[in-house]
Design a protein around this nucleic acid. Structure first.
Lengths: 119, 119
DNA sequence: CATCTATATTGACACGCATCAATGTCTGGG
DNA sequence: CCCAGACATTGATGCGTGTCAATATAGATG
């Protein structure tokens, strides 16, 4: 159902935008950026991101992550799915385990979009 | 109820944090960062920010801003209040008009927190 | 095939929040 | 003093979403 063979994550579709303050955002741009930020703007997901990043090899399986929270396993899976779908987490299945890894480039693109070009 | 006489905006209370990925966020840190991002993660507020920034002198009054949206005036006031309260917009009243101005430093702090230190 | 474990999906519920109409507050002018 | 205009506050409503229990899927092992 994707438009082309090239798969673009939501992050990539806005990473090209001017920094927030350079010119008025269009309605479409604002909605795309907002949905990205909404995905980040959740305490559990923020902790998941930083936990994954701090893990050995920058990777962590769901079982490692779920231990750190007082939440049901489906809830953790849900949050990981959200982060994966917007392109902030890579997902790789090895055996029975699923490993997630932070896409640092995506996060820094988003940071630059908000804070202005890092240059 | 603040800890000291120095008034810190929500942005300033997290701006000192390590970048998101350097070490696992505490529960408290995650909640503070999340509430900041929630304030940003709204299409109307994103457009308001970029509109104010693009306005002459980097300032705009509510009447200028309200014109750009198909929303009731109280809704715009509500969004401006949210952005002001987290420290992303400065507020100054002159006569009957209220002018808002982007605190660029606050935004760039937030961007750095997400995207890693701009260095 | 049967079973166990790791992870994902589904459906339901409760809570937060964007929005509006109505009303309040403040300032300037006649 | 009263009116008009700019902006804020309040209260109500509908929708989005974080959470869980229950269930499904999929890989490993015997």
């Amino acid at each position: 159902m994707s438009i082309s063979a090239i798969e673009l994550t939501p992050v990539q579709t806005v990473a090209c935008c001017s920094p927030l303050l350079r010119q008025p955002l269009s309605v479409d741009q604002a909605e795309r950026v907002a949905s990205l930020l909404k995905a980040l703007a959740e305490p559990v997901r923020l902790r998941l991101l930083s936990l994954v990043a701090s893990h050995a090899d920058g990777e962590a399986c769901v079982c490692d992550l779920a231990e750190a929270f007082d939440l049901a396993q489906p809830t953790i899976s849900h949050h990981l799915k959200v982060l994966h779908e917007i392109g902030l987490l890579d997902r790789s299945k090895r055996g029975v385990w699923v490993y997630y890894k932070v896409r640092r480039e995506a996060l820094s693109d988003l940071g630059a979009l908000i804070g202005g070009a890092p240059q």
